[in-house]
Design a protein around this nucleic acid. Structure first.
Length: 784
DNA sequence: CCGCTACGGGG
DNA sequence: GGGTACGTAGCGG
């Protein structure tokens, strides 16, 4: 018997002499951290049928792809029904069998659940579970051991496995890979094909040799987990292109296969077998983003926030110049640091991915890529099996379109902010507002329009008898409270904290899922009702807060920002009193919490010119930390000068240095007017997203690309075009010029002052009564 | 104002 | 392998 910690799974079709059979492949590590492949050929694919009558059974059995038919009882919505469980020889034949009978039965169910997912659900195996495997032990490819399983039992062991983790990163110039860095906990290495003195950098002959050396190092290091930052859409994609160019392949999977691209929706993901590729960007972007302060999810910003260190500063132009000039030391260090940073970020995030895997039952590979909606859906599919429900089917394409056409329902309540600077602020929010509403009022597709809880201001009611979704959310919340209790004992706090975070993520996603057109448990009325309850209770909080002696400065969906009406009142004391009073009145498990107390707070108006911000405030806490929301000029169509300026202005304003902020804007305007800046400060960069011929619209970067192509440049999808807006009367697109055709005399002073500097400055400074004329006297004067 | 198109992350 | 994201901003007509 062997203990194996489960990390990944898939299936293959094995060919015997006369027939084919599906074999589940489980990949994991043993207690020493050695890789193990487990094969299980005992599980059979199946789906469910709701028949019109029992005569159909013999007809189904007559199909030679069908192995067996059983009669079972399952809950379909509110009713228990007798269903046929139809076992099929191969996973891909489920569709064929279903197609052959779908017109002679009432309904088919669960015919699109992937075979390996079906296996994990039915066996109740979760990723990171330790499995006791009995069977014939051998070897296979690069796996330390292979076991043809006779029995597999879940054990209650729960320690973390010993894993080998490796991160890599590539640098690209002119669509060629010029450099690859790799890092693990022991150190790092860089591969390139130009000379450098940096000691952990290895120089090989050319790009092809570098790729082969990369394969060699991966197989020697033999990692269980491969980390990238945006590897799905960049590093692995480029690798694929370059390998195709050289007509070679890299056997970097433990089964000696190369990477395969699994297309899901618009995104393709790079999958290896026997080494789990975790793309940290996907996880950050899909799952973690709402929890982060940052509104930009670059490796630089995310690592600064989570681990307190960022990338080396180097511009795109510098990378190209550095490579072409052959002075690559700085570039090598930059590349090296990217892999090291990815490893450090992985140390922080992998435990969160694993915990989400444990809780949701989804593989780490999938967990790090699924969106909120799909994560909760797969969790519900697992719970449906546990509770003997059959899953509702996925909607068909036309049904999804129909759902999308339904008018958007009213969302959360927003009280417009009292624009300006405020001191001594308390911020309250509802603890998990929507999950607690779903549980308190039993909101679920099975309970709607039955006597019970009445939705404020709507014609719907929900029964008091537990529904499926609401009971699952209830279990999650109860589990989370238990964990929070356990945490008070002070043992194993980090892991418990990650577990309660993972539960929170899934619980929070349940509300959004009701309104997601592609969802199996889609329920527009449920989403509408939860939102209505939310609006009702936040408005009630606003009323109560005002009665209690607060001024409510701002409120959005589940939070309210207040200060005391009476200046002598201490905000801390008042806030705690208010909470105690209000929480006695709230129904069910609804609860208001104190999110924090801040020494100053700035609200800016929603609309300034064309710009509409969602959440738009900046807070300064009592330790002097700045929290900025919704105001950052983050898009790439802002030049560096504008981006840096806005951040400085916010900082000065919150620290009550308004005059200095204005002075800074004036100085920047003067610098632009007198052309005392560098071209790189005003360069705007845009990527070419598709083939040039496919563009119907015009945009600055497209015009640039067309001009460059005429001059004989090689223009390809994915290129970044850097440009500067020059003087003239034509449309902006026509005035955009490539950076190397422009001198400091050519740029359009008006454009940069008005569209970049002033618009960015006014987002903040208009609050204090400033307008354009305060930063530049008579704008017309310097038109040309 | 509407409808079309592009952006993001990575280099 | 089940999907053909998704929410928002800018531009042109």
């Amino acid at each position: 018997m062997k203990m194996v910690c489960l990390l990944d799974a898939d299936y293959i079709i094995e060919k015997d002499i006369d027939k084919e059979k599906p074999v589940i492949r489980l990949f994991g590590v043993d207690e020493e951290g050695k890789s193990v492949l487990v094969l299980d050929d005992s599980f059979k694919p199946y789906f469910y049928v709701l028949p019109k009558d029992r005569k159909i059974i013999s007809k189904i059995k007559a199909n030679k792809m069908v192995l067996d038919v059983e009669t079972v009882k399952r809950k379909v919505g509110n009713d228990e029904k007798e269903l046929l469980k139809v076992f099929v020889d191969l996973p891909q034949n489920i569709t064929k069998v279903r197609d052959s009978i779908k017109h002679s039965v009432k309904e088919c169910y669960e015919y699109t659940i992937n075979f390996y997912k079906r296996y994990l659900i039915d066996k109740n195996f979760n990723p990171l579970d330790w499995l006791a495997v009995d069977g014939e032990i051998g070897r296979k490819n690069r796996f330390n051991e292979m076991i043809k399983a006779k029995t597999i039992k879940k054990s209650n062991q729960n320690e973390n496995p010993k894993l080998k983790v490796l991160a890599f990163d590539i640098e690209v110039v002119d669509n060629k890979i010029i450099m690859i860095s790799l890092a693990d906990k022991f150190g790092s290495k860089i591969l390139t094909y130009k000379k450098t003195d940096i000691k952990n950098c290895e120089t090989v002959k050319d790009e092809k040799m570098m790729l082969l050396r990369f394969e060699e190092i991966i197989n020697k290091k033999d990692p269980d987990i491969i980390l990238t930052y945006n590897g799905d859409q960049f590093d692995f994609e480029i690798l694929r292109e370059r390998l195709d160019e050289y007509k070679i392949d890299l056997k970097i999977g433990r089964d000696d296969s190369s990477m395969r691209f699994a297309r899901r929706a618009k995104i393709s993901s790079a999958r290896l077998f026997g080494r789990v590729h975790i793309d940290l960007f996907n996880f950050v972007n899909n799952i973690l983003s709402p929890q982060l302060q940052s509104e930009v999810f670059s490796l630089d910003e995310v690592s600064k926030e989570l681990i307190g260190e960022g990338k080396d500063e180097i511009s795109l132009e510098e990378i190209i110049d550095s490579w072409n000039s052959g002075k690559i030391d700085k570039l090598v260090k930059y590349c090296d640091n990217d892999s090291k940073l990815t490893i450090k970020l992985g140390n922080k995030l992998l435990p969160e991915v694993f915990e989400l895997s444990r809780v949701s039952g989804q593989l780490p590979f999938d967990c790090s890529r699924l969106t909120y909606g799909l994560l909760v859906e797969w969790f519900l599919i697992k719970k449906a099996y546990e509770k003997n429900y059959v899953c509702p089917n996925q909607p068909h394409w036309d049904e999804i379109q129909k759902r999308r056409e339904i008018r958007p329902y009213k969302g959360g309540y927003v009280k417009e902010p009292v624009v300006g600077l405020h001191d001594n602020i308390a911020v309250f929010d509802f603890r998990s507002l929507y999950p607690s509403i779903i549980v308190t009022f039993n909101i679920s597709p099975e309970t709607i329009n039955q006597r019970g809880y009445k939705v404020p201001g709507m014609k719907y009611s929900f029964s008091k008898k537990d529904g499926f979704v609401s009971s699952v959310v209830k279990e999650l919340i109860e589990k989370r409270l238990q964990i929070k209790e356990k945490m008070k004992n002070g043992k194993n706090i980090e892991q418990l904290n990650e577990e309660q975070q993972a539960i929170k993520i899934i619980a929070n996603a349940s509300y959004g899922m009701f309104a997601y057109a592609g969802a199996r448990w889609y329920c527009y009325e449920c989403a509408e009702s939860a939102a209505a309850f939310g609006r009702y209770y936040i408005k009630k909080m606003i009323d109560e807060a005002e009665k209690f002696g607060f001024v409510v400065l701002y409120s959005d969906t589940d939070s309210l920002f207040v200060k005391t009406k009476n200046k002598e009142d201490k905000i801390d004391k008042k806030a705690i009193e208010f909470l105690a009073k209000i929480n006695k009145k709230l129904p069910g498990i609804m609860e208001l919490e104190l999110q924090g107390i801040y020494s100053s707070c700035l609200f800016v108006p929603q609309k300034i010119g064309n710009y509409t911000a969602k959440k738009r405030y900046a807070l300064l806490d009592r330790n002097g930390n700045l929290i900025i929301r919704g105001m950052e000029a983050v898009r790439s169509d802002w030049c560096d000068l504008a981006k840096i300026l806005q951040h400085k202005i916010l900082e000065l304003i919150l620290k009550k240095k308004e005059r200095e902020a204005v002075k800074l804007v004036k100085e920047t305007v003067e610098k632009i007017k007198s052309r005392k800046i560098e071209l790189k400060d005003i360069t705007i960069r845009t990527q070419l997203g598709k083939e040039l011929e496919d563009y119907k619209a015009t945009a600055p970067h497209i015009e640039i690309a067309k001009k460059l192509k005429k001059k004989g440049h090689d223009i390809r999808t994915g290129m970044i075009l850097s440009y500067i807006i020059t003087k003239g009367h034509e449309r902006i697109s026509e005035r955009a010029k490539p950076i190397d055709e422009v001198t400091i005399k050519d740029y359009d002073v008006d454009y940069y002052i008005n569209n970049q500097i002033i618009s960015v400055a006014l987002r903040v400074l208009s609050v204090f009564g400033y307008s354009e004329k305060d930063f530049a006297n008579n704008l017309k004067k310097f038109t040309k």
